[in-house]
Simulated scan of single mutants.
Amino acid sequence: MNDRLVAALTACAPRLPVGVAFSGGADSMALLAIAARHWPGQVHALHVNHGLQQAAEDFERHCAKACERWRVPLHVEHANARHAPGDSPEEAARHARYRSLAALATANGLGAVLLAQHADDQVETLLLALSRGAGLPGMAAMPARFERHGVLFLRPWLDVPGVDLRAWLASEGLRAIEDPTNNDIRYTRNRIRHGVVPALAAAFPQYRETFARSARHAAQAQELLAEVAAQDLAAMQGEPRIGGLQALSRARQANVLRHWLAIRHAARASTAQMDELLDQVACCTTRGHDVRLRVGDGFVQRQDDRLAWSPSV
């Protein structure tokens, strides 16, 4: 096996047994094959069938054959990834995928789920965030480890170029299935992959390393802001209080409110929503001043001396 790939896999040190998110594509094929050889009998394949394209059943059959050949248990979840009008189909599919992977991992007693994103995916994620005017959380791109739905997810290959994975597959004679949507330039990520990244490679050959370093700097800065926000929220007894907010700078108010919305309510405010909310907080000079603003998928409103959030019904 490729020493670099194995070393990166070992370094993430998951609790065994472990699951591998297995789509049947080249990246997850390499991850599952190497993990199964490195931890024999301790690896499970987790496949999410979104049912969003005609080839979905072919993907599932391909995964089943590969797992049968490698004697790896395969667990399949048929997810509902349909998006509501106005919502991003990519975002809806991603949320459905994580819910399904977490459910499969929990049901089978797995210590973690390995994801096959690599250095090229990290670059695309950073460029996609920049194209949308993202702040530090977006610029931090994908973390190497995170928890979602009570399950630990690990990305062991974020420093590994995708070409290395494909070279290893070719050397082993392994055939991966190709997702036809990967070439659909209606999706922003694919336009970045096929148009922007080749230009970057020509102009800045070390772009993978330098972009990854920038993402790590952004992640460190975001960790510091999260610590400050947690301290500010604790000083207000765990709830954003009007007087406590007004004693902070506007930037620090935005920081603690974003933290509160994300941690307590899994809600995210747009820049325009946050600006309006901060303006309303500044105007709260009397007890009679009301606040009710849409933020994320719900509303922030004033309750006595504090702010509260409630989901839309």
Rank of each mutant, 00 (worst) to 15 (best):
residue 41 G to P: 08
residue 46 L to R: 06
residue 65 K to C: 11
residue 191 R to S: 10
residue 4 R to V: 06
residue 267 A to C: 02
residue 307 L to S: 03
residue 6 V to R: 15
residue 99 R to L: 06
residue 304 D to E: 14
residue 107 A to T: 10
residue 123 V to R: 03
residue 256 V to Y: 03
residue 41 G to N: 05
residue 139 M to S: 08
residue 220 Q to F: 03
residue 312 S to H: 04
residue 152 L to I: 08
residue 208 R to P: 09
residue 312 S to Y: 04
residue 218 A to Y: 10
residue 298 G to C: 05
residue 127 L to W: 04
residue 312 S to P: 00
residue 249 S to K: 14
residue 281 V to W: 03
residue 234 A to V: 05
residue 197 V to N: 12
residue 165 L to R: 10
residue 120 D to P: 12
residue 189 R to V: 12
residue 163 V to N: 14
residue 255 N to E: 13
residue 153 F to A: 06
residue 298 G to H: 06
residue 209 E to G: 04
residue 61 R to A: 13
residue 188 T to M: 13
residue 194 H to M: 08
residue 228 V to S: 10
residue 264 R to D: 07
residue 213 R to P: 01
residue 101 L to Y: 00
residue 293 L to P: 00
residue 233 L to F: 08
residue 232 D to L: 13
residue 303 Q to V: 06
residue 195 G to A: 09
residue 285 T to F: 05
residue 25 G to I: 03
residue 165 L to W: 07
residue 313 V to T: 10
residue 126 L to W: 15
residue 251 A to H: 07
residue 245 L to A: 07
residue 277 L to D: 01
residue 286 T to M: 12
residue 158 L to N: 02
residue 199 A to T: 06
residue 256 V to E: 04
residue 31 L to N: 14
residue 31 L to M: 07
residue 104 L to E: 06
residue 108 N to Y: 14
residue 244 G to L: 05
residue 79 A to S: 11
residue 60 E to I: 00
residue 87 D to A: 13
residue 39 W to G: 05
residue 251 A to T: 04
residue 255 N to A: 03
residue 131 S to A: 10
residue 32 L to C: 11
residue 10 T to G: 03
residue 78 H to I: 09
residue 149 H to E: 15
residue 256 V to I: 03
residue 89 P to K: 09
residue 197 V to S: 01
residue 132 R to Y: 07
residue 85 P to S: 08
residue 229 A to E: 01
residue 249 S to L: 09
residue 120 D to F: 07
residue 142 M to A: 03
residue 259 H to I: 04
residue 182 N to G: 11
residue 147 E to F: 02
residue 188 T to H: 12
residue 177 I to G: 04
residue 218 A to N: 04
residue 303 Q to T: 08
